[in-house]
Design a protein around this nucleic acid. Structure first.
Length: 593
RNA sequence: GCCCUCGUAGCUCAGCAGGAUAGAGCAACCGCCUCCUAAGCGGUAGGUCGCAGGUUCGAAUCCUGCCGAGGGCACCA
């Protein structure tokens, strides 16, 4: 619809140019695409353009004069009822009701395709999201990234991009070793060994579960005397140990574990921990409606030599130097605040080195656009990754990093403390169990991602009008209910008369609803391109409101056959858009509530 | 200290590639069910858009400074 208006203004501009009223030289040989906006105030019509004001200076005309000439040059269109120049030089378009009737007909014909488009033209886009370390279950912080990433990916798909959803699995590195050691120590405790669990170990119950399965399946096969395990370790950072160092302590434990268990057995425990947790994360995300095309292993990056290749490329470009036994990347030359280590003095490559290799690989895989969705706590990481891509000569602009702020949970008006130690829930699974998937998905994307979010658990759970999820779903359920009753009365629910009788839709409420429906494609497009799912949740609330208002004001199943037919078609259109929109954010559209 | 994000109605938030009187939902107050689910609808009230400058025909929106909130500044991942 918007494009239709845009086309008209474009034609008018071209005509003025042809008449010599606008000289192309002022625009470097090319006329700008006019900006068309929905009006905020309905007395200003349906659409408006500020083209005359924007172009006035270069055209050497006063805005209102240019506007008048543009209006005179506009081709006539049955969709436009009236055009006027207003204010400082706006051109306002009042659409004919028929234009909206035609749009409804299109919705009914297109069905689920209404709102989808080919804007993305099949361009390949990668969306990497969540990518939490597989050292424990996902918590509610990851939940927001999961919901946000899934919706951004689905929105991009809806507007025609070929989207590749990916999870980067940090299956290498120290944190995984700490998990492995934690599992093993718990196992030893189950074997009857007496030990003091390290303060830096993973203490969650899930560690006990993994240890228990190891003990159940393998008895004492992995048992080593606790005295040997803790032999020669630096003291832990616990009460009564003034010189304790929890980092050194756990690193020593890992060393001992590797030595005492030997490669194979260590590997076995390590894999058991990794796979158990990764399976749990996979299942959790699947249940949350976040699907992936690929789970990309950090370990394969090292094993395939990609990390060394990345370092090699940086070295060839001359952006690498050695200092104090470590290998550094001169990231400060590319916008980072300081240089970063690639290879530590102990010979191990850093996480950053893997990440360079990973992003290099992403771009090499030919994605036109690479979107990383990270927690806001990683924002300091953005400049160095971009620096690496710049240094490698890759187009760093192809990478978009979207930062998702944390969500703070509230229950009973009180902030829910998020420490692992407190008894209050922290996992995504617990959140889903408490408020349900629909509410969780909706609430998580209701706010702009860079906005700090207050997540009100009581509201998310409440089955009331205050709850935006129920409010939108209820609109859908109400329509279904009307259709059920129509069927009971023997009224054709799928009208056989095609798009006839739509002209009977003429009340204020019907036109408002039609207008809202016509905005849907624009909302999907804007939400997709700007990565802002909240535009869609806001829209759905508006649409539901328009439906509820209509429902209260008019009876749908009236005796007048053509009117009834038209009204049923209208609510069928609303049902379609509610379904599509809720579907895009991963929320169900129930037939009954 | 430096960097990032945010600061809009009592609360939670939209609006920000500048545009015509600043919007919504809660909460408050007043109304609406003999009628397809009142899990609904309508109305009233409520704001010097953190503060101060600047850019321009026009600034909540762009720029600078300050104040406030959160986060980040590892040879951790």
């Amino acid at each position: 619809m918007k494009q239709q208006i845009q086309g008209l203004v474009q034609d008018a501009l071209e005509q003025l140019a042809a008449q010599g009223a606008l000289t192309l030289e002022a625009f470097q040989g090319e006329l700008p695409t006019p900006q068309i906006e929905r009006t905020r105030d309905e007395t200003h019509g349906d659409f408006a353009t500020n083209a005359a004001m924007v172009l006035a200076k270069r055209a050497g005309m006063r805005p209102r004069d240019l506007a008048e000439r543009l209006v005179a040059a506009l081709p006539s269109s049955p969709a436009v009822a009236r055009v006027e120049v207003a204010g400082p030089g706006f051109i306002n378009f009042h659409l004919a009701a028929d234009a909206y009737h035609a749009q409804l007909a299109e919705i009914l014909i297109s069905g689920p395709d209404y709102g989808r488009s080919q804007l993305g033209a099949g361009k390949r886009v990668q969306v990497e999201f969540v990518s939490a370390n597989p050292t424990g279950p996902l918590h509610v912080g990851h939940g927001r990234g999961a919901a946000y990433g899934a919706v951004v990916a689905d929105l991009l798909t809806a507007v025609g991009f070929d989207v590749h959803r990916e999870y980067y699995v940090n299956d290498a590195g120290r944190q995984m070793d700490i998990l492995c050691a934690s599992v093993w120590l718990r196992y030893l405790e189950l074997c009857g060994e007496d030990l003091v669990f390290p303060s830096n170990g993973y203490k969650g119950d899930y560690v006990w579960d993994i240890a228990a399965s190891l003990h159940r399946e393998h008895g004492d096969d992995y048992r080593v005397e606790a005295g040997q395990v803790f032999a020669g370790l630096p003291p832990d950072e616990i009460d009564g140990e003034p010189n304790g160092d929890k980092e050194a302590h756990i690193d020593g434990l890992i060393e001992n574990a590797k030595r005492l268990l030997g490669d194979n057995r260590y590997r076995f425990v390590f894999e058991l921990g990794l796979n158990t947790i990764l399976d749990d994360i996979r299942q959790d995300l699947a249940e949350f409606g976040a699907s992936y095309q690929e789970w990309y292993s950090e370990r394969t990056l090292t094993e395939s030599g990609a990390v060394n290749r990345a370092i090699g490329r940086l070295r060839e470009c001359g952006h690498v130097y050695e200092q104090a036994g470590a290998l550094w990347f001169r990231s400060s030359a590319f916008g980072d605040e300081k240089d970063r280590v690639l290879v530590r003095d102990n010979g191990q490559t850093t996480y950053f080195a893997s990440d360079i290799a990973y992003h290099m690989d992403k771009l090499e895989r030919g994605f036109e656009r690479v979107i990383d969705i990270w927690g806001a706590d990683h924002h300091g990481y953005v400049p160095r990754v971009k620096a690496a891509l710049k240094a490698l000569g890759d187009e760093a602009e192809r990478l978009d990093v979207l930062l998702v702020q944390f969500a703070v949970l509230y229950r009973g008006g009180e902030k829910v403390q998020m420490s692992t130690r407190s008894g209050e829930f922290v996992t995504l699974r617990q959140l889903r169990k408490e408020v349900g998937r629909d509410a969780a998905r909706f609430f998580y994307v209701m706010r702009r991602c860079e906005q700090h979010m207050d997540f009100d658990l009581d509201l998310a759970k409440s089955q009331s009008a205050d709850n935006p999820v129920y409010y939108c779903q209820y609109a859908h359920a109400r329509i279904e209910s009307v259709l059920r009753q129509a069927a009971e009365r023997g009224i054709l629910v799928e009208p056989s008369s095609g798009t006839k009788h739509l002209e009977r839709l003429e009340t204020e409420h019907e036109l408002a609803l039609l207008k809202t429906l016509s905005r849907y494609p624009e909302v999907v497009e804007a939400a997709a391109l700007s990565h802002e799912p909240h535009l869609l949740t806001h829209y759905l609330r508006e649409l539901a409101n328009a439906l509820h208002t209509y429902y209260n004001a008019h009876q749908f199943l009236v005796d007048d056959g053509t009117l009834r037919d038209a009204r049923i078609k209208l609510i069928l259109g609303v049902r379609q858009v509610l379904r599509s929109g809720l579907g895009l954010i991963g929320v169900s559209a129930p037939a009954q509530m």
